[in-house]
Computed example of a mutant assay.
Amino acid sequence: MSLLEATPELDLVVWPDDRSCDRTWLLGNIPGSTGLVVMLTEKVDSEILDRAGPSLKVVSTMSVGYEHIDLRAAAQRGLRVGYTPDVLTDAVADLSVMLALMTSRNAGIAMAVAKDGQWPNHPWSPFALCGPQLSTMASSPARKAGFLGFGRIAQATLARLVSFGITHCLYSSNPSSPTNHERDAELAKRYNLQSVTKVDIDELARESDFIFVLAPGGHDTYHIINENFLKQMRRTSILINASRGTLVDSDALARALREGWIWGAGLDVVEGEPNVTLDHPLVKEPRCIILPHIGSATLETRRAMAVRAAQNVIAGVLGGNMPAEVDLSGYR
């Protein structure tokens, strides 16, 4: 806010509450606006853009994802769209590893035993609350981390996993993207890995001990983690999703957990969020760790995202270079 308030060319109209903006309020206040700052919770569609009128120049979202913005409608109106990549890479990578550890060590079940006062009824036994170990041991010298999507956050997650003794990295990305052999060889050398290899999605499912879903949302990746994928995973494998809930078929994942196709799942995102209640099939699964979309929720990261969103809208309004602008050339 200090950046926006210090820009004399701007008159600010601000939603006053610390919660999702009411759409009726937005529709009532947006006419004549030059710039619009939104969150993931605001659906920026033709109705909003038409109500804003021809004065609107830029939409700036405080998020790395922009599926909530109709990019085609924005491009057709000659608008610019800003977003906040890079600044949340480390926070989401940290959380991805945290989810892997929590899931593999049955943290959800274990915490419930303590918090519900059931510890006296769960005496120690040799294999109580055991799960597959993230780090390598002499008895399991090979440990394979798989990534669906291999962008900035996935590579930052891989860097964190190296200290646990991960030996192989497998990844699957956009099939139309050429394999970057030089980069993969450099990553393998930097992290002393036996291999960094691009594979198809079926091999990713079959060969990975831990699978990290860190790909963008959208039509092309909708339910890419489905029954067929889950059935190919190992019974001791763990699925982590810190990207978009729409990539994972929740019903198929719940069945996979219930019937033991995989060991467990750690989710920061769930399709249909925030409408995820006690009767949701994944909430009912004890080996599913669910967090309420807190991947970027560090004080440092959220401040950086806010700054980037403000810088984007200021540049968009004044005709300058936006720090992070979505390429809309393919939507015109």
Rank of each mutant, 00 (worst) to 15 (best):
A138N: 05
R143A: 04
P120L: 08
L101A: 05
S104C: 11
T157E: 00
L129N: 02
S96H: 01
A142K: 14
L161M: 15
I153S: 08
M102K: 03
H168L: 10
E182P: 03
S135F: 08
S96V: 07
N121E: 13
T179M: 11
M102L: 13
P126W: 10
N180G: 10
S172P: 06
A100Y: 06
R143G: 01
D94A: 12
S139G: 06
P126E: 09
H181W: 08
G149A: 10
S135K: 01
T157Y: 02
A142R: 14
K115S: 15
M102I: 02
T167Y: 06
T179E: 11
H168E: 15
G149E: 06
N180K: 12
R152L: 02
G146T: 09
R160Y: 05
S163W: 03
L95V: 03
G151T: 03
L148Q: 12
A156C: 02
T103N: 07
C130Q: 05
G117L: 02
T179N: 13
G131F: 02
A154E: 04
A128M: 10
A159K: 07
D184Y: 10
L134W: 01
V113F: 01
S96T: 15
P123R: 03
I153G: 09
M137A: 07
L95M: 14
A93H: 07
A159V: 01
A93M: 12
G146D: 09
S125L: 13
A159P: 01
Y171K: 13
N174M: 10
T136I: 13
G146N: 11
H168G: 09
C130G: 00
H168K: 13
W124P: 06
F147K: 08
M111F: 13
N106F: 00
L101E: 04
V162Y: 05
M137L: 11
W119Q: 06
C130N: 07
S172W: 15
G151S: 06
L148H: 09
G146Q: 10
S104Y: 00
A154M: 03
A128S: 11
